[in-house]
Design a protein around this nucleic acid. Structure first.
Length: 596
RNA sequence: GGGGUGGUAGUUCAGUUGGUUAGAACAUCGGCCUGUCACGUCGAAGGUCGCGGGUUCGAGUCCCGUCCACCCCGCCA
């Protein structure tokens, strides 16, 4: 029979008692972590709650009845105990915060028993992910995971405090809203009242927060769930949480300052780490050219080098053909990398290929020129020029990319990360934040043969680039920015368009004609006509932020109830089929299932 | 949509060249044990080798398909 708490309220938690409570009578409640019986006289139980663990001692001679009950205890039973805090003296356990004391129990209450858990609940054990997800509530008992969730709560709390100190209001936005073109695939919600019509769950509250600005709530924030129906990754969940921020009458500099305070406060208060602000800045162009990616990891000095001019006259066909096709040749110098084995290089080549490169040309630098790899093709014709540009030294390994610019950047940019890891260039304690600015406004989508908004369609072009909007969209730079932490995009935002005319022009460039714009975004265009203030903002990915603060390898480690790679919840078995009647009510019918 | 890793006892894993009754540790159950702290110790029980097909005298092992979990590319304004 399970017992209710009935006045058996705790006086302390399991992480709290120290030598200063010795002699006090206390009441503790929690889960049985461990029970160690030493026979007739002695029995130790480790009691766990979210605050820590405390050792309980049962004495068989003094209290045989309590002892007999205690002997029946099993892992994960929920119990309450009353007893005296006693000094462990020479038996103290230095590994535990509460290891100096133990509670000598004279009253034991069993609130509930537990089935044998499917895996041992302990930090060190690593059960299969699917088991952990099926029994998520048990996995969350593990202190390592529980502390991530607790840390997440602290982050949220700090964020609220900082933003509210700057007059930001916590304002809500609808979860059931309108599907809009552009961006990710929407999660749809069928309408019962309007047969055949659908709401969409928000990919972000973008338009609503802008409309709040039009309303005059000049500083908004929200810690808000967002939904995107795209394939998952270790750092991507279909529902995730944004720290969403928007402000009116504000410039980028002011916004950056607030964000820097937010980020440094979180690091200081949650993990006790002091960061210096302002954070360095890097233009998108510079990031792409030196790091190959738009979210550069600036913890190590390893850069991509432009070699197109230096190898223009070389005899290596891969290079000359790439250049002839309008591509580029870039190189990565791996200091002391001459010791890399062929196997190491093949591994790097596999990374390059994963990002679309056809291969990864390489050679070693020696005192007598290049050796091995493509040495014989390049030494005579352009060896000297390459060495001059790269400033490489004997013992280095050179890795080359020759292809279209975006392919070379992606390939070498990601090879760079692996090289840094392999050379041990990454300081695990470093926290390098960098603002990436001056993103292009548009990206050409070759497949769809049209321009795409790189950030989103509500981002404002730079004032000086407005004239280019119609004649040369590719050259327009946006007032957009990302905040990057150790190579991970932590957040991003922009100054928005607050002018109907400009907004219409941007839609036009994106191939959204006046009629479609009116149909899909009419409410926004209309709102912009009624005195929309200049405004801008950004959003941080809360989950990723917490993941980085916890040093966790996956978002699943900082989300209490996450989804699997295939977007299912193993605990509740969602998604699921629904009753035919439910579908009928919504005027829905499944089709094409047999093809699946 | 594509590439990769894994799936064997409740759990974590081992399982040789295809060959007798599929093993270990932990967990579980029972006994012993008065200072353990991942207690120790003795014993017991515990298997749809993910699932389906195929090859073979014989399949955990080889082949084909499929499901699940994870990592990556595409996708994710």
């Amino acid at each position: 029979m399970a017992e209710f708490i009935d006045g058996f309220l705790r006086s302390h938690n399991c992480g709290q008692l120290t030598a200063s409570q010795i002699g006090e009578q206390v009441t503790l409640v929690g889960w049985v972590q461990d029970h160690r019986s030493l026979g007739g006289g002695h029995l130790f139980v480790v009691l766990r709650d979210r605050y820590g663990v405390t050792q309980l001692k049962f004495d068989g001679e003094a209290l045989p009845e309590v002892f007999a009950t205690a002997e029946k205890l099993r892992s994960e039973w929920v119990i309450g105990v009353r007893g005296a805090v006693i000094d462990r003296g020479s038996n103290a356990n230095a590994d535990l915060p509460t290891g100096g004391i133990e509670v000598e129990v004279h009253e034991l209450k069993i609130f509930n028993r537990s089935a044998t858990p499917p895996f041992v609940i302990r930090d060190e054990i690593d059960a299969a992910e699917n088991l952990r997800l099926t029994y998520r509530y048990l996995d969350l008992r593990r202190p390592v995971l529980a502390s991530n969730i607790i840390r997440r709560s602290r982050v949220v709390s700090t964020v609220r405090r900082v933003l509210e100190s700057h007059d930001f209001l916590d304002l809500e936005t609808p979860m059931m809203t309108r599907s809009t073109p552009e961006g990710a695939r929407d999660y749809l919600v069928p309408s019962r009242v309007h047969p055949g019509q659908f709401y969409a769950l928000p990919q972000s509250p973008q338009l609503f927060k802008q409309l709040y600005m039009v309303s005059g709530f000049d500083r908004y924030y929200q810690i808000v769930r967002c939904f995107r129906d795209e394939d998952l990754r270790a750092d991507r969940q279909p529902e995730f949480t944004q720290i969403d921020i928007e402000a009116s009458f504000i410039d980028t500099e002011t916004l950056f300052k607030i964000c820097e305070e937010l980020v440094t406060s979180v690091f200081a208060e949650v993990v006790g780490k002091k960061l210096s602000a302002p954070f360095p800045r890097l233009s998108y162009t510079e990031a792409m050219s030196r790091y190959g990616v738009d979210a550069p990891d600036t913890r190590y000095e390893l850069f991509l080098n432009e070699l197109s001019a230096a190898v223009a006259g070389c005899e290596f066909k891969v290079f000359t053909e790439a250049l002839a096709a309008g591509g580029v040749v870039k190189a990565l110098v791996v200091p002391g990398g001459a010791g890399f084995s062929r196997k190491d290089i093949t591994l790097l080549e596999d990374i390059a290929k994963a990002y679309g490169a056809k291969g990864l040309a390489w050679t070693r630098v020696t005192d007598n020129g290049f050796d091995a790899g493509i040495a014989k093709y390049i030494e005579a014709s352009s060896g000297a020029a390459i060495r001059e540009v790269l400033g490489c030294a004997s013992g280095d390994l050179l890795l080359f990319g020759a292809d279209a610019l975006n392919v070379v950047n992606a390939a070498l940019g990601n090879v760079r990360k692996e090289v840094a890891a392999k050379l041990g260039l990454i300081d695990p304690n470093a926290v390098n934040l960098v603002w990436v600015t001056e993103f292009p406004m548009f990206e050409w989508n070759a497949e769809a043969q049209r321009w795409h908004a790189m950030h989103h369609p509500f981002t404002s072009p730079r004032a000086q680039d407005m004239p280019l909007l119609s004649e040369n969209p590719g050259a327009v730079l946006a007032q957009a920015y990302d905040l990057v932490l150790n190579g991970v995009e932590l957040g991003g935002g922009s100054i928005r368009i607050h002018d109907t005319e400009v907004q219409s022009q941007v839609f036009q460039t994106l191939g959204i004609g006046p009629e479609e714009a009116e149909e899909k975004f009419g409410f926004l265009l209309k709102a912009l006509q009624f005195g929309a203030p200049p405004h801008g903002g950004l959003a941080f990915g809360l989950d990723r932020f917490v993941m980085l603060l916890c040093g966790a390898p996956s978002l699943r480690d900082v989300i209490a109830f996450p989804k699997t790679n295939r977007a299912t919840d193993l605990m509740t078995a969602a998604p699921s089929s629904v009753a035919e009647a439910q579908l009928k009510e919504l005027y829905l019918k499944t089709v094409g299932l047999e093809e699946k």
